[in-house]
Simulated scan of single mutants.
Amino acid sequence: MRISVAILAAAVLAGCASRASDITAAYVSPLTYESYTCDQLREEATRVSSRAIAATGAQNQRASNDAVATGVSLILFWPAAFLVRGDGAQAAELARLKGEMDAIEQVSTRKRCGIEFQRTPQPVATPVMERG
């Protein structure tokens, strides 16, 4: 009995959605932004940052919902384990946005635009822009 509960718990936990901070950036080529001017890079940085903030909140909410479903399934009602959704398109979108932020920052550094994304404890990145 204990072994089957342990196996069920491991299976459910493996399917839980990741916190946004645990999702690594997908590679996005800096060449995508090479033709952008500094002003265009600033605009794109603001746009990508806004989308990343929204995606981070949605991913963290999904992770919280999965954690609740996992707790309910392990303690009260095992069929609730089927409510655990895990990572999906939302996590992939967040990884892509993080990659875009990295690429924009690299091009900004190379062009001396002064755009750096401010990393916070929860990886919500917002661009810090200096006119120079």
Rank of each mutant, 00 (worst) to 15 (best):
A80I: 07
A89Q: 05
G86R: 03
T37M: 12
R119G: 10
A6D: 15
Y36P: 03
Q40D: 13
A91T: 01
L74N: 05
D87G: 01
R42A: 15
D87S: 06
G132I: 14
G86H: 04
P127F: 01
V28S: 02
A95R: 05
G57F: 06
T109D: 10
S73D: 01
Q118I: 01
G15N: 14
R112P: 03
A17C: 13
Q122K: 13
A9G: 03
A92T: 09
V128W: 05
A9N: 06
S4R: 15
K111L: 14
A52N: 00
Y27D: 12
A69P: 02
G99Q: 05
A91D: 02
C38I: 13
M129K: 12
Y36E: 08
G15C: 11
G15A: 11
C16R: 01
E130C: 14
A54C: 08
E100R: 00
Q59V: 10
A11W: 12
C38P: 12
Q59F: 04
D22T: 07
A14Y: 14
L83A: 11
R131M: 10
A17T: 12
T24G: 00
A17W: 06
P127R: 07
E43R: 11
Q118S: 11
V72K: 08
T32Y: 04
Q40V: 10
L94N: 06
E43Y: 07
A52F: 00
V107R: 01
R51C: 04
R19Y: 01
I7N: 01
A92M: 08
Q118F: 07
T70R: 07
G114L: 10
A9S: 03
L41F: 09
T46N: 09
E116C: 10
E93L: 05
A67P: 03
S108N: 11
E44A: 03
E34G: 10
V84P: 04
L31K: 15
V72R: 04
L8Q: 09
A20E: 03
A14S: 12
S18R: 03
L97R: 00
E34I: 14
L8D: 07
A63N: 00
A58S: 02
T120L: 00
G114S: 13
I104N: 02
V12I: 15
Y27R: 15
R110D: 11
V124L: 01
A20Y: 00
F82T: 13
A92S: 13
A67Y: 01
E44M: 08
I53S: 06
A103F: 01
T70Q: 11
E34L: 14
I115V: 15
R19N: 07
L83D: 03
E105C: 06
L76S: 12
G57K: 04
L13R: 05
A67W: 06
A69M: 11
R112Q: 14
E100N: 04
W78K: 14
A9I: 12
